[in-house]
Design a protein around this nucleic acid. Structure first.
Lengths: 164, 164
DNA sequence: CAGTTGGTTCGGAAGTCACCGAACTAAACA
DNA sequence: TGTTTAGTTCGGTGACTTCCGAACCAACTG
């Protein structure tokens, strides 16, 4: 991390690490994404990213393209300038919410399956653990509902914002 | 997976995979844990696990010990029998909740940090994204609260259960 | 057309992970 | 005391990941 305050540098590492395991990104992709989220510049060039992250051209290329493909970032061009400029997509937080949603939903379905299985095949065990299993299922359901309303809220906000 | 119905076998794979990335367990550990959750037998021996998973002694040993260390499973012995018998701990779902809690809490703290950072260093950007950032922060807070009450509920249930 | 700029693709090096088999230990038993 | 049983430890191997540099390509520029 060059040309960046120490505070920002530390936060980039921390945030990058978080993306790394929340979104399953390679380390460099996580850091690039973090840099963009913490920057007020609208559009970093390829060169900028190389300089900031001290990574190689090839790695930066690969990881920028990955982030674009996953819709975490997008690029635009300026007339009379061959460079591409990258920035976070407007909806990146919504994407995160949707990922949360997918994972909670998947877990909920699995928990239901397990509860059903044990009810059928291990009835004694199920009776013992019944309430615990149901508490867990309820918990996931509530989380899922909260996510649903939050996603709606965020979509509404984005629409409102577009009309300005 | 031997000596197991196809239905159970499939569910073991699925559940094992889920543990693998929810709890960061090695694949074999995930499968072992899944087997125990889906079984009505109270206590699997070392041998049982080797047979069911078709894995080597050394791998089973390593992964059983890992699961014990992480308190996902525990073992007991029978008088006049040198074998150890393994089963899930009573609180395994509470452990899961507590892990969820840790991760949500960590994410929330990070989001707060990011919001604070952008408010200070990129005020224009922050103003634009303000509501979105806050919506996300609120969302995480709500999830955290739901987790807190669920954990309390589960502890209460376990205590009640112990008194029987 | 030759050279520069902006970026991609490819092969490989270094590191990590999960698993295995073989050798080992420690307790029980004959 | 020698043998079996129950499980652990260690060295190594194959698969995978991440990153790098070098060669490459495509578009513009003089």
């Amino acid at each position: 991390m060059q040309n960046i305050s120490e505070e920002k540098c530390k936060l980039v590492e921390e945030l990058g690490l978080s993306f790394e395991d929340n979104h399953n990104l390679p380390p460099l992709a996580g850091r690039i994404y973090a840099v963009m989220i913490l920057s007020s510049v609208d559009g970093h060039s390829f060169e900028d990213i190389i300089e900031i992250t001290s990574a190689s051209k090839s790695s930066v290329s690969t990881n920028l393209n990955l982030l674009v493909q996953l819709k975490f970032i997008e690029y635009f061009t300026k007339t009379g300038d061959r460079k591409r400029y990258f920035r976070t997509t407007k909806n990146y937080l919504r994407l995160t919410l949707e990922e949360h949603y997918e994972s909670i939903d998947k877990e909920l379905e699995l928990v239901k399956k397990v509860n059903t299985f044990n009810k059928k095949h291990n009835p004694e065990k199920f009776k013992k653990n019944k309430n615990i299993g149901l508490i867990f299922q309820e918990y996931l359901t509530t989380q899922k509902e909260n996510l649903e309303t939050t996603i709606k809220k965020m979509i509404a906000f984005n629409n409102e914002f577009d009309q300005l």
